[in-house]
Protein backbone atom coordinates (compact mmCIF):
# COMPACT_ATOMS: atom_id res chain seq x y z
CA UNK A 1 0.00 0.00 0.00
CA UNK A 2 1.08 3.56 -0.39
CA UNK A 3 2.30 3.45 -4.00
CA UNK A 4 1.45 6.76 -5.53
CA UNK A 5 0.08 8.16 -2.28
CA UNK A 6 0.51 11.91 -1.88
CA UNK A 7 -0.06 13.74 1.40
CA UNK A 8 -2.37 16.62 0.50
CA UNK A 9 -0.72 19.98 0.99
CA UNK A 10 2.63 18.57 2.08
CA UNK A 11 5.67 20.17 0.51
CA UNK A 12 8.39 19.10 2.88
CA UNK A 13 10.63 21.57 4.63
CA UNK A 14 13.76 19.68 5.32
CA UNK A 15 15.20 18.32 2.15
CA UNK A 16 17.86 15.69 2.49
CA UNK A 17 21.15 17.53 2.87
CA UNK A 18 23.20 14.76 1.30
CA UNK A 19 21.19 11.92 -0.12
CA UNK A 20 24.08 9.53 -0.27
CA UNK A 21 24.58 9.67 3.50
CA UNK A 22 20.98 9.58 4.74
CA UNK A 23 19.28 6.15 4.75
CA UNK A 24 15.62 5.91 3.63
CA UNK A 25 13.05 7.37 6.04
CA UNK A 26 15.67 9.19 8.12
CA UNK A 27 16.05 12.92 8.83
CA UNK A 28 19.12 14.80 10.00
CA UNK A 29 19.47 16.28 13.49
CA UNK A 30 22.11 18.49 15.06
CA UNK A 31 21.46 17.52 18.68
CA UNK A 32 21.97 14.13 20.22
CA UNK A 33 18.58 12.72 21.24
CA UNK A 34 18.45 10.27 24.13
CA UNK A 35 16.39 7.10 24.12
CA UNK A 36 16.22 4.28 26.64
CA UNK A 37 13.63 2.00 28.15
CA UNK A 38 14.40 2.56 31.82
CA UNK A 39 16.33 4.64 34.33
CA UNK A 40 19.95 5.40 33.55
CA UNK A 41 22.17 2.94 35.47
CA UNK A 42 25.03 4.52 37.39
CA UNK A 43 27.59 1.78 37.95
CA UNK A 44 30.71 2.93 39.86
CA UNK A 45 33.85 2.37 37.78
CA UNK A 46 35.43 0.19 40.47
CA UNK A 47 32.49 -2.20 40.05
CA UNK A 48 32.56 -2.05 36.26
CA UNK A 49 34.03 -4.82 34.18
CA UNK A 50 33.73 -6.10 30.64
CA UNK A 51 33.41 -9.80 29.98
CA UNK A 52 33.39 -12.19 27.04
CA UNK A 53 31.41 -15.35 27.73
CA UNK A 54 29.49 -18.12 25.97
CA UNK A 55 31.00 -20.04 23.07
CA UNK A 56 34.61 -19.16 23.82
CA UNK A 57 37.54 -21.37 24.72
CA UNK A 58 38.06 -19.32 27.85
CA UNK A 59 35.94 -16.45 29.24
CA UNK A 60 37.69 -13.08 29.42
CA UNK A 61 37.35 -10.19 31.82
CA UNK A 62 38.73 -6.68 31.97
CA UNK A 63 38.40 -4.28 34.87
CA UNK A 64 37.86 -0.59 34.00
CA UNK A 65 41.56 0.00 34.55
CA UNK A 66 42.59 -2.94 32.37
CA UNK A 67 40.08 -1.91 29.72
CA UNK A 68 41.60 1.56 29.66
CA UNK A 69 44.99 0.08 28.82
CA UNK A 70 43.77 -1.65 25.67
CA UNK A 71 44.67 0.05 22.41
CA UNK A 72 41.87 2.39 21.37
CA UNK A 73 40.81 4.02 18.13
CA UNK A 74 39.19 7.30 17.18
CA UNK A 75 36.09 6.89 15.06
CA UNK A 76 34.18 9.55 13.13
CA UNK A 77 30.93 8.17 11.80
CA UNK A 78 27.29 8.82 10.93
CA UNK A 79 24.69 7.23 13.22
CA UNK A 80 21.09 6.30 12.47
CA UNK A 81 18.35 5.75 15.06
CA UNK A 82 15.30 3.64 14.23
CA UNK A 83 13.17 6.51 15.59
CA UNK A 84 14.14 8.27 12.32
CA UNK A 85 16.90 10.67 13.32
CA UNK A 86 20.39 10.48 11.89
CA UNK A 87 23.42 12.42 13.03
CA UNK A 88 26.48 12.95 10.85
CA UNK A 89 30.17 12.99 11.80
CA UNK A 90 29.87 11.89 15.42
CA UNK A 91 33.29 11.50 17.05
CA UNK A 92 34.03 8.59 19.36
CA UNK A 93 36.92 6.83 20.99
CA UNK A 94 36.74 3.15 21.78
CA UNK A 95 38.30 -0.27 21.77
CA UNK A 96 37.66 -2.27 18.62
CA UNK A 97 35.70 -5.47 19.16
CA UNK A 98 38.45 -7.09 17.04
CA UNK A 99 40.91 -6.18 19.80
CA UNK A 100 38.66 -7.74 22.45
CA UNK A 101 38.27 -10.92 20.42
CA UNK A 102 41.99 -11.27 19.66
CA UNK A 103 43.12 -14.82 20.36
CA UNK A 104 39.60 -15.99 21.20
CA UNK A 105 38.71 -19.39 19.73
CA UNK A 106 35.02 -19.63 18.92
CA UNK A 107 32.56 -21.43 16.68
CA UNK A 108 29.99 -18.69 17.34
CA UNK A 109 28.29 -16.80 14.54
CA UNK A 110 26.24 -14.47 16.75
CA UNK A 111 26.70 -12.35 19.83
CA UNK A 112 24.42 -10.89 22.45
CA UNK A 113 25.60 -7.67 24.07
CA UNK A 114 24.48 -7.47 27.70
CA UNK A 115 24.25 -4.32 29.73
CA UNK A 116 23.61 -2.73 33.10
CA UNK A 117 19.87 -2.34 33.50
CA UNK A 118 19.19 -5.69 31.82
CA UNK A 119 19.21 -4.49 28.21
CA UNK A 120 20.41 -6.92 25.55
CA UNK A 121 20.82 -6.79 21.78
CA UNK A 122 21.80 -9.50 19.32
CA UNK A 123 24.17 -9.14 16.38
CA UNK A 124 25.85 -11.34 13.83
CA UNK A 125 29.52 -11.82 14.70
CA UNK A 126 30.43 -10.60 11.22
CA UNK A 127 28.63 -7.31 12.02
CA UNK A 128 30.94 -6.58 14.95
CA UNK A 129 34.27 -7.77 13.50
CA UNK A 130 36.47 -6.51 10.71
CA UNK A 131 36.64 -2.92 11.98
CA UNK A 132 32.87 -2.45 12.20
CA UNK A 133 32.26 -2.20 15.96
CA UNK A 134 33.79 -0.73 19.09
CA UNK A 135 33.21 -0.47 22.81
CA UNK A 136 33.23 3.32 23.03
CA UNK A 137 34.12 5.22 26.19
CA UNK A 138 34.46 8.78 24.89
CA UNK A 139 32.26 11.03 22.77
CA UNK A 140 33.43 14.29 21.22
CA UNK A 141 36.65 14.20 23.22
CA UNK A 142 34.94 13.77 26.59
CA UNK A 143 34.18 10.73 28.74
CA UNK A 144 30.89 9.25 27.57
CA UNK A 145 28.03 10.64 29.67
CA UNK A 146 25.79 8.13 31.47
CA UNK A 147 22.75 9.40 29.57
CA UNK A 148 24.46 8.42 26.31
CA UNK A 149 25.57 5.03 27.63
CA UNK A 150 28.65 5.84 29.72
CA UNK A 151 30.93 4.64 31.02
CA UNK A 152 30.96 2.53 27.86
CA UNK A 153 28.59 1.58 25.09
CA UNK A 154 28.77 -0.60 22.04
CA UNK A 155 29.19 1.36 18.80
CA UNK A 156 28.00 -0.41 15.65
CA UNK A 157 27.34 2.56 13.40
CA UNK A 158 26.39 0.66 10.24
CA UNK A 159 23.27 -0.69 12.00
CA UNK A 160 20.34 1.15 13.64
CA UNK A 161 21.54 2.65 16.87
CA UNK A 162 19.58 0.41 19.26
CA UNK A 163 22.23 -2.18 18.35
CA UNK A 164 24.85 0.18 19.83
CA UNK A 165 23.90 -0.95 23.32
CA UNK A 166 24.34 1.60 26.10
CA UNK A 167 25.97 0.65 29.42
CA UNK A 168 27.40 -2.46 27.80
CA UNK A 169 29.14 -4.89 30.16
CA UNK A 170 30.02 -7.76 27.89
CA UNK A 171 29.42 -9.96 24.90
CA UNK A 172 27.98 -13.47 24.95
CA UNK A 173 29.06 -15.46 21.90
CA UNK A 174 26.56 -18.00 20.59
CA UNK A 175 25.95 -20.36 17.70
CA UNK A 176 22.27 -19.31 17.56
CA UNK A 177 20.83 -15.88 16.86
CA UNK A 178 18.85 -15.12 20.02
CA UNK A 179 16.61 -12.00 19.83
CA UNK A 180 17.57 -9.32 22.35
CA UNK A 181 15.38 -6.78 24.15
CA UNK A 182 13.92 -4.75 21.27
CA UNK A 183 14.33 -7.65 18.84
CA UNK A 184 11.84 -9.61 20.99
CA UNK A 185 9.44 -6.67 20.95
CA UNK A 186 8.94 -6.25 17.23
CA UNK A 187 12.21 -4.74 16.09
CA UNK A 188 14.33 -6.28 13.36
CA UNK A 189 16.94 -8.96 14.08
CA UNK A 190 19.62 -7.33 11.89
CA UNK A 191 18.61 -3.65 11.64
CA UNK A 192 20.37 -2.43 8.50
CA UNK A 193 19.25 1.20 8.01
CA UNK A 194 20.10 1.13 4.30
CA UNK A 195 17.59 -1.68 3.83
CA UNK A 196 15.21 0.04 6.28
CA UNK A 197 15.07 -3.06 8.49
CA UNK A 198 13.18 -1.37 11.32
CA UNK A 199 10.61 -3.95 12.36
CA UNK A 200 9.88 -7.66 12.04
CA UNK A 201 9.36 -8.57 8.42
CA UNK A 202 10.93 -5.39 6.99
Amino acid sequence: MGEGFISRGFGGRRRRPDDSRLPPGQYLVDGFPVLSAGPTPLTPLEQWDFTLVGEVDEPKRWSWEEFGQLPSEEITTDIHCVTKWSKFDTRWEGVSVDTLLEGVETSAEYITAYCDGGYTTNLALEDVTGGKAWVAFAYDGEPLEPVHGGPARLLVPHLYFWKSAKWVRGLRLATQNEPGFWESLGYHNFGDPWREQRYWGD
Binding site: A37, G38, V147
Partner: peptide, 29 residues
Protein backbone atom coordinates in the same frame (compact mmCIF):
# COMPACT_ATOMS: atom_id res chain seq x y z
CA UNK B 1 14.94 13.82 28.40
CA UNK B 2 15.73 16.08 31.40
CA UNK B 3 12.37 15.19 32.98
CA UNK B 4 12.80 11.48 32.29
CA UNK B 5 16.36 11.51 33.65
CA UNK B 6 15.31 13.36 36.81
CA UNK B 7 12.33 11.14 37.48
CA UNK B 8 14.08 7.86 36.67
CA UNK B 9 17.08 8.65 38.82
CA UNK B 10 14.95 10.00 41.68
CA UNK B 11 12.63 6.99 41.74
CA UNK B 12 15.59 4.60 41.86
CA UNK B 13 17.13 6.81 44.56
CA UNK B 14 13.88 6.56 46.58
CA UNK B 15 14.27 2.78 46.50
CA UNK B 16 12.07 1.80 43.56
CA UNK B 17 13.07 -1.24 41.51
CA UNK B 18 14.56 0.05 38.21
CA UNK B 19 12.86 -2.85 36.41
CA UNK B 20 9.47 -1.35 37.47
CA UNK B 21 10.31 2.06 35.99
CA UNK B 22 9.66 2.24 32.25
CA UNK B 23 10.66 5.30 30.30
CA UNK B 24 10.03 6.87 26.95
CA UNK B 25 11.44 10.16 25.75
CA UNK B 26 10.20 12.90 23.48
CA UNK B 27 13.25 14.69 22.19
CA UNK B 28 13.16 18.35 21.28
CA UNK B 29 14.63 17.27 17.97
Amino acid sequence: TPLVETVGTALVGLGHDPARVKTERFGAT
